[in-house]
Each structure stands twice: as structure tokens, then as C-alpha cells.
Design a protein around this nucleic acid. Structure first.
Lengths: 195, 195
DNA sequence: ATTTAAACCGACTCCTTGGTCGGTTTTATT
DNA sequence: AATAAAACCGACCAAGGAGTCGGTTTAAAT
């Protein structure tokens, strides 16, 4: 059953939910329909289960845990995105950030799941925001900065990068993105010269 | 036949390519399978046709034409994105920017179409870049700016915003995004103080 | 008016896929 | 060993969707 979820996540992630049939998954594991429907009541139930048990945990581990650090929040964010955009061959990090692909897929087809996924994305958002606000207090981030706006900007740009990098490893693209992101972040930092 | 394409684009855009059956389209137009397959050799051929005749033209109209302006490129870009993120109720602009949704959909399912769509996106990119470079020459943009990087950043953030705003009109989100984009752009402008 | 081709119809086939179900094997408990 | 429960099998069903095809209507050309 754990195998089922793992393989399911793998195939769903690679080929998409609707483009992966149960038979595909079952064939690879040499399991039967009966085995599957003994554990899950539907394909969508199966998916939600996977998200719950794998993705959500990763998101928390990746996005809540870093909050506790005392470092510069902007550095923390840069590092996490750098990591998250790494080509995902057995990339632990990728699991936490695969939401985007599923979001688009479920957009109009299953609004319930779509909303559910978006809620998870919101976890990222609120944690980003509070991380940024903390950075303000700690003097890393300029006081005029709109933390909510910055969070939105980060999330949007990251999601877009995932779209652009879909097919494979475009190191150049990633490099350009990270470079601009750093410059943007640089703008947000508290500088003495401004005072 | 023109009706077919128009309705096809509408439904594909609303529900996705794979989530829209030919019957769905045909039913709305009271046409038959025969009529359809008289004009197109397959569903995918139909789609490519639509993209060719509708989307590509829009992209050119929206992204090549603005190049000729003498205004500040950054303002031009801001305006176009502002427009493009407007809720798409009969929004002409939206047609030019719907590529993102299809890109994700065709990602692993039809690499040929995916690549084709990405090529169109590249049109946007090269035009953005040359617009930015022109802005440099005209003194609107600082000389140290990496135009390719900026273009990537713009595209990524825009695509991400389309993902975030999928369900409907989140004016707040859009506002935050535009605000940050403007600040980011502000950083790129040539200022006397820097000299 | 006749011919010809384009446009169109709709029933049909084939295939995929999610889901069902009666029955069998495995595992654990006593 | 006996029993029960969980896990599992795989043939089967029903629905939906892409694509086919022989035939009919419409429109244009001569």
C-alpha cells in the first residue's frame, strides 16, 4: 500500500493524474484492480491520500521548518528555491513543490481537489509571509516592504519557472531566474544608505 | 469551419484539450462527426489549426506590435501584463496569453504540440528581450541589466500568476503582483543618482 | 437541368479506463 | 488446526471518446 502510493506519486508526477491509468500503476507493481480498490475507494481518493501522506509532509518539512532559522530570510528563500528548481531526479525537494503541475491539471476538472491543492499552496504562502515579517523585525528586510506582495511575487515566479522548465534541465534558465530573484531581493534589504 | 475553431478554442480554453470531447464541441454547434472529420484529420490537427489561426496571430499582435512604440518599454510591458491578467470575459487579450494552460496540459502527453506551443512562447521572449535592449539604448533601462534574465523573470512570474489566478478573479492577488513588478522594474531603470 | 464536388450526417467500431464483484490466497489470532 | 479478517485476484461491466464510412444534402459550375 505504501508501494502503491509511492509508485502512484511517481507516475502521477511524471505523466499527470489523468494521463496515468490505474492499470499503468498496477502493472508496474504487478498488482490487481482488486488490491487497489481494497485500499482506496476511487482513483481520486487515492490521489488525495498520496498528497496527504507525502506531499503535505514535505511541504511542511520544507517550508515550516526553515522558519525557525535565525539567518537572513531572503537567503533562506533563495536557497530553498535554488534547491526546488534542481532537476528532480530523486530530488527530495521536488516533492514539496510539485503542487503546481497538479494545480493546473485539476483546474476545471475537479474543483474540489483543485481547492485542496491550493490550500496547501497557501501553507507555503503564509509561511513565506511570516518569514518575511520576521525578517523585517530582525532588520534583514526594509520596513517599507509589502510582505504579502513579495510572497505572491515569489510564488508566482517560482510556479512559472516550473512551467518553463517542464521538459528538462535548462540550467541557463534557472541561472537567469535566480540571478534576477537575487537582485529583486537585494532591493528589499535594509540598507544603511537608504537611511 | 470558422465557427468550429472559435467554439473549439473556447471550450479547450475553458475545460482543457483532453477534457473537451469532440462531441461536446459538435453538440453545441449542432454539427456531426462527419462534418468535423471532413475538415480536420484528427483532434490534435484541429487544435494545432486553432492555435495557428487564432492564438499565434494574437501573440504577434500583442507582442510584436508594441515593439514599435517609442515609450518606456517597462511601461509598455506593465500595461500589457496588466491587461493580460484581466479576467478574461471576452477578453481579446487573453487569447494571446492562454498558452500557459495548454503548455502544462501537453507537457508529457504530446511532446510535439508541447514543443510547438513553447516555440510560440519563445516569440514572446525574443520580443521582450529586444524591447528591453531597445530600452537600454533609449536610456530607459540601466546598462548593467541582463535583458535575457529580466525577460525570463517576467515570463515566469506572469505564467505563475496565471496559475494562481486560475479559478477566477482575485483582484487582490493581481494588485500585489503588479505592485511588486513595478518595484522590480523601478530597479531596472536608469537613474541619475546611480551615476 | 445535369453533373460534380464539397459539406455534412449519424450510426457504428474499437479502444481505453474507472469501477465492480464473487471468489481465492495470505496473515494473524486463539 | 480452526477461524476470521485482511489482502488480493482478474474477469467483467458500463461509459465515454476518437475515429470510420457509406450515404445524403447542399452548392456551384457548365
Amino acid at each position: 500500500m505504501h508501494l502503491l502510493c509511492a509508485k502512484g506519486l511517481e507516475l502521477f508526477h511524471n505523466n499527470g493524474f489523468y494521463n496515468t491509468s490505474l492499470d499503468d500503476i498496477l502493472k508496474e507493481l504487478s498488482l490487481s484492480k482488486g488490491a487497489f480498490y481494497h485500499h482506496f475507494k476511487s482513483k481520486e481518493d487515492f490521489f488525495v491520500n498520496i498528497i496527504q501522506n507525502f506531499v503535505v509532509q514535505k511541504v511542511y518539512a520544507l517550508l515550516v521548518e526553515p522558519l525557525s532559522t535565525q539567518e537572513n530570510p531572503l537567503h533562506v528563500i533563495v536557497d530553498s528555491l535554488e534547491n526546488a528548481l534542481e532537476p528532480s531526479k530523486s530530488n527530495e525537494m521536488a516533492y514539496g513543490f510539485m503542487l503546481n503541475d497538479f494545480l493546473t491539471e485539476f483546474n476545471k476538472r475537479n474543483t474540489e481537489i483543485h481547492r485542496y491543492l491550493k490550500d496547501i499552496l497557501n501553507v507555503w504562502e503564509v509561511n513565506l509571509i511570516s518569514l518575511l515579517k520576521k525578517g523585517k523585525v530582525d532588520g534583514y528586510i526594509a520596513r517599507h516592504v509589502n510582505c504579502e506582495g513579495v510572497a505572491t511575487f515569489i510564488i508566482a515566479s517560482y510556479l512559472g519557472m516550473r512551467s518553463l522548465m517542464m521538459d528538462g534541465t535548462d540550467a541557463q534558465l534557472k541561472y537567469q531566474y535566480m540571478q534576477q530573484l537575487k537582485q529583486y531581493f537585494n532591493m528589499l534589504t535594509e540598507r544603511e544608505s537608504v537611511i
